[in-house]
Nucleic acid binder design. Structure first.
Lengths: 218, 218
DNA sequence: TGTAATGTTTACCAACCGGTCAAATTATCA
DNA sequence: TGATAATTTGACCGGTTGGTAAACATTACA
């Protein structure tokens, strides 16, 4: 038996790279729909178009696969927040952030659901990453928002809860898609859904944070 | 063998009522944490403090148990929206609704997570209830909100997305509790969490909807 | 080309899953 | 009390699960 991917030192074969990609794509599909415990290796293997032992040759356990998927997705998932620019115009920065998050909910709903499943079930595998890299990034951007409020550029508000509310409102359209569609009915379940949401959320957040509404010294 | 609960016609024994309560309580604990497919009957039986066959004497299948739990919780879960009063003052009605929803997220996080799990995984068992009773109730309240906007009492906005945003922001504190705690750190993870959230959300929604900000004819 | 490393498959296993069964125990009430 | 109905239990079953062993096929490369 050859050494599987876990034992590789430097170079990765073309075939390794392709297969691992193929597997993680299938794993995303299945994990995001059923959660960790609800997903089966057989199912992932079938979606990936390979036999179960072949899959387990690249990822020795179900958990290895899940962890690899989570860490990769978490990284790209935080990109919109990283782009948050302290030097930019507060109003347009917040507006862009909302828009980008909403686009991600529209274009990458599986990634959003993968996280939602993980967090919902107590985040047994990624608690460290939440308390580490995620918290650091949020702390940094919260400080930016606080400075904007202090300078009177936006209304004073708790920056952490502002970020939470942007996360929750935007990701809602990915995670609770079934409910949103059910409530809106067939008429508005099509494409216009996200445009309406974007318009509403812009009004909500820019209205709620507008400094004309709330003088910097209340 | 006696007839189990499914065959009862009218009267329920004290012992039946107590045991079924005991089982649903345990089922809520386990289903809300692991989802339907991730939860095991053995686990629920253990939490309920009884043997698996004994549990299955009251609920013949895992799905029966899950369905009973869902329908019961869905009913109480929608209470805050039902209290939404068309005759009341728009601003205080919306404020009360947010406060009640936030209190439910604080006091009944397991119920919130049960739904989140269900919706997230495609709501295979409750799609009908979403498209029926839930949609009807939301349609009714959306019409109320629209009439308030038309009368110039609040800013014009899409009432459906307003409701979605209230749901998502409040339930976030139950469903994503682990993440919220991780980001806020140990300092603010205690009790003050929900009070800060309430203050922020009130500012956000009442600011975003205030008619002084957005004349009824823009 | 030859051969060693890499990749793939078939057959299989022990543990666990939801659910059944019949026997044993307990509550009900004439 | 005694008989009948309701409840509880241990043993068990077929199917599924995550994972393994080893033979087989393919690729990389000297």
């Amino acid at each position: 038996m050859a050494l599987p991917r876990a034992a590789r030192t430097q170079r990765r074969t073309r075939i390794q790279e392709a297969k691992e990609e193929q597997i993680l794509e299938a794993a995303l599909e299945v994990f995001s729909l059923h959660g960790f415990r609800g997903a089966t290796v057989d199912q992932i293997a079938e979606v990936a178009g390979m036999s179960k032992p072949n899959l387990l040759y690249y990822f020795r356990t179900k958990e290895t696969m899940h962890r690899a998927l989570i860490t990769r997705v978490l990284d790209t998932w935080l990109d919109p927040l990283r782009e948050f620019d302290a030097e930019g115009n507060p109003v347009s920065e917040i507006r862009s952030y909302i828009r980008r998050k909403l686009e991600m909910a529209r274009d990458f709903p599986r990634e959003s659901r993968l996280f939602a499943n993980e967090i919902l079930q107590g985040a047994p595998n990624i608690e460290d990453e939440l308390k580490g890299p995620l918290k650091s990034l949020v702390d940094e951007k919260a400080e930016v928002i606080r400075s904007w409020a202090k300078a009177g550029k936006i209304a004073k508000c708790d920056p952490y809860h502002l970020i939470f509310s942007i996360w929750s409102t935007t990701q809602h359209y990915a995670d609770f898609d079934v409910q949103v569609r059910a409530v809106l009915g067939q008429g508005q379940s099509g494409e216009g859904r996200f445009e309406d949401a974007a318009r509403f959320l812009e009004q909500l957040f820019l209205g709620g944070l507008n400094v004309s509404e709330q003088p910097s010294e209340a």
